[in-house]
Every structure is written in structure tokens, then in C-alpha cells.
Amino acid sequence: MASSSSSSKTGLKKMLTLKSSDGDEFELEESIVIQCQTIKHMVEDGFSLIPLQNVDTKTLTKIIEYMKKHAEKTESNKEEIKNFNKEFVKGSFDDQFELVSAANYLHINGLMDLLCQSIADRINNKSVRAVREIFNISNDYTPDEEEKVRDEHKWAHEGGEFDESLD
């Protein structure tokens, strides 16, 4: 009895399967998944099994968590969503970079803005050296050149100590 009612329920909603690069499959309602523009276009083209070769299981799990929560968005749970977002952006820079790459690939605009804003907030007060480490950028200046650029914009380097930590 219970199973027939639940199956009739799912019968009303179109389900889609997302497949991570590790081969794990996730079944989700179409209404949740279409927040993601890339998948939306695939659904419109008639696909129901969607392989995501650039997104691993760990990242996809997080992204599904985000899409599920944001699908519930109404006028009354704004505060709840805000708290969810706050928790969502905690985690190492590497994890955030994985997520931001996936959000970019999947074209989930809300998530892209949330992640970029939070990463920007976290590096706002970092030192130049820390930022290089975090983004894994090698310094292509000679010491003289770097000094010159620093001198040109001295005001931006003034005003206290900058954060050297990498988290």
C-alpha cells in the first residue's frame, strides 16, 4: 500500500540520474536539477542519464546538497537558506576550488556567486605571498619588478599586518 502510493508519487515527478566521474549515480527530481543550466539544456534535449565527467562524487554530493536546499527556497525560509549558505562555504580552499570549478562547469549561477564571494572575502586580508600559495601561482616578477609594482601602489600595502595563513 505504502509502496504503491510512493511509486505513484514519483510517477508524477520526472526523475533524472546524475553520474559522477567516479561512476556513482544519483537519482534526483528534475525540478531540483534544472537549477543547473548545463543539465537543463541536456534535459531539454531528451537526456535522462547525465554523465558528469568533470565532477567527482565528493563534489557532486555537495552540489546536490546545495541544489536540494535551494529548491526549497520560499519567502519564509530566507534565514534558514542564509545559514545553510554560511555553513556551505566553510572548508579548505582546495575544496572550495573544486566546488567553484564544478559550479562553473554546470552553470549554477547562484552557487558560483556564493563561492566566488566567499573566497574573495577569505583572501581580502591575505598577504601577497599567502595568495600566491593558495592559488598555486608562481611569482613571475624579478625582485626589482615586484618592488616597483609595490611602490606604485604603496597605499594598498599600508594599514597593518596582512594575514599569512593559508586557510
Binding site: V128, V131, N139, D140, H153
Partner: peptide
Amino acid sequence: YRFKCVCK
């Protein structure tokens, strides 16, 4: 402006 020093 500070991060102009990060790389070219």
C-alpha cells in the same frame, strides 16, 4: 591593488 604584486 595589493594583489597586483602576485603575478604579472
